[in-house]
Amino acid sequence: MTRAAALRAAVLVYLALLLLAAVPAKVRPGFLAAPGALAARALGALSISPGLPIFSGSVTAVHRRATCLEVRATLADGAAETLYASACPPTGFRWRIDPWDEMVLGLARRTRIERFVPGAPAPAATERWKLAALGDFFCRSPLAASGEREEVSLRLESLLVLYSSGRHTSDRAITCRWRCADAPLAPPSCERAPAPSRPQDALGPGTAHAGA
């Protein structure tokens, strides 16, 4: 086999792996199940992804407008300090996503924090891992704050917009708390804010809380 032929063969094999891995397992015909899984493993070993399921969300009727995230620490002397707060909602023209927002807010959104509330489906290991990393960073990293921290709380609330009317609403915020003296992988205690008794008054005219 010549060098050119070997190169062609290698390229064709790689392209076949890419296309096989691009077809999701649930729609692969039976005879492609094993080669498809093999292709995904082979590319995964090289840390190559065939693509991204970008904007694949299935939500209708109510859409997210903004994510409000606030991380606060209680210091050893009892003082409280805000370690991170996203603009909520952000205003004005934004020529790019602020890299720190992209990191912290993006990671918080990917924790699927609603699964940490008692009674919700148990979070997956990857989601526990993400939330543990966030909690550890704000509890213990010298880059997040100076000095010792007793407790860190993370409050996440989504501002929503109704597709039918454009009405603005919000979900009930979730707050998670870490005792910084606990083991780094100890799960935080999380709770949802109680439903307001008069939702129409809570956020002002034209707004309401979603039940969530």
Binding site: P50, S56, V59, T60, A61
Partner: peptide
């Protein structure tokens, strides 16, 4: 392959078929 992955992921997404994905 990238468009293939994106396309498959939208095949059963009501947000896309009901025309709300861009609004979202």
């Amino acid at each position: 392959a990238m468009y293939l992955v994106a396309g498959w992921s939208r095949a059963d997404s009501p947000s896309w078929w009901q025309g709300e994905a861009t609004f979202a």
